[in-house]
């Protein structure tokens, strides 16, 4: 049974336009999947339907055997502990230290009172430091998050997702605000999450070349519909042009500009 099944998913924010229409796909455990497509194609909405940060209008999302749309409030919190999320703007609390931000990932496992008092076990703290060590930012653990560079902040974001011990990590344009070097570091870390820890990754990307280099499979969205869903090597220039409605220049040049 696949880890994640999306069936006939439809979503609209108002009556006129449908953001997602009839979206179907399956993701197996341990896959690295990229979602590409033009701005406004519904990539972010699709990701947020998976952990129900937005409500599902039509169809169903089945994660790990549970129908995401049918869960009550408490079940939803439990579900979200299994799903890590990484954001374009990192979304850390800027005035808190790195280690505090990482430990925020454990709130899903806490009762209200435990969470308010900030009671974390020694094991959780050790795990937090271990993750920071792995991501190469352990030396900044006690610094405030707003003193870190963008790439470093994104690594804190990844640590916060990983300390949840998730089955899947959703990344919403994780490298869109980063320079090429930081982008490579972040993508390498995300890749190693799948390869080393066996955690499934779904990544929204704007950079087609990056998607092709890193992912096992690519899903192309256009105007809320899946127009491409195949192994990444099968994404040709021609099909990219159809996806984005562009005409590409000679291949080599574009490649150089887009690769990070």
């Amino acid at each position: 049974m696949p880890l994640l099944t999306v069936e006939q998913l439809g979503k609209s924010y108002n009556t006129h336009t449908k953001v997602l229409r009839n979206v179907n796909f399956e993701v197996e455990a341990g896959e690295f999947v990229s979602i590409i497509g033009p701005s406004g194609a519904g990539k972010s909405t699709l990701l947020r339907c998976i952990n129900r940060m937005v409500d599902i209008d039509e169809g169903a999302v089945i994660f790990n055997g549970a129908d995401v749309g049918m869960l009550n409030k408490k079940e939803l919190r439990t579900l979200r502990t299994d799903i890590g999320m990484v954001f374009q703007h990192y979304n850390l609390v800027p005035r808190l230290s790195v280690i505090e931000n990482v430990l925020h990932g454990r709130f899903g496992y806490k009762t209200t009172l435990q969470g308010i008092m900030g009671r974390f076990t020694e094991a959780e703290k050790e795990r937090a430091f271990y993750l920071l060590e792995k991501l190469g930012i352990a030396e900044h653990a006690y610094k405030r998050c707003n003193q870190l560079s963008g790439g470093q902040q994104q690594r804190v974001g990844i640590a916060r997702a990983l300390i949840q011990e998730p089955k899947i990590v959703l990344c919403d344009e994780p490298i869109a605000s980063l320079d090429p070097k930081a982008s490579t570091i972040i993508m390498d870390h995300l890749k190693s999450i799948t390869v080393e820890l066996g955690i499934t990754c779904i990544v929204n990307l704007h950079q087609v070349e990056v998607a092709r280099d890193y992912s096992d499979r690519i899903i192309g969205l256009r105007e809320g519909q899946v127009v491409f869903d195949e192994m990444s090597y099968r994404l040709t220039e021609q099909r990219t042009d159809i996806l984005y409605g562009t005409k590409s220049k000679p291949v080599t040049q574009v490649r150089e500009l887009l690769t990070v």
């Binding site: 952990n51 940060m53 919190r77 439990t78 579900l79 979200r80 502990t81 799903i83 890590g84 999320m85 954001f87 703007h89 979304n91 850390l92 609390v93 808190l96 505090e100 925020h104 990932g105 454990r106 709130f107 899903g108 496992y109 806490k110 209200t112 969470g115 308010i116 900030g118 974001g157 916060r160 997702a161 949840q164």
Partner: peptide, 21 residues
């Protein structure tokens, strides 16, 4: 920043966790 609230909600944090932390 509403992204911060979203990020904490996505981890499964409850409303009081978000307010306090």
């Amino acid at each position: 920043d509403k992204g911060i609230i979203e990020a904490l909600r996505a981890t499964g944090a409850s409303w009081w966790h978000i307010v306090v932390h």
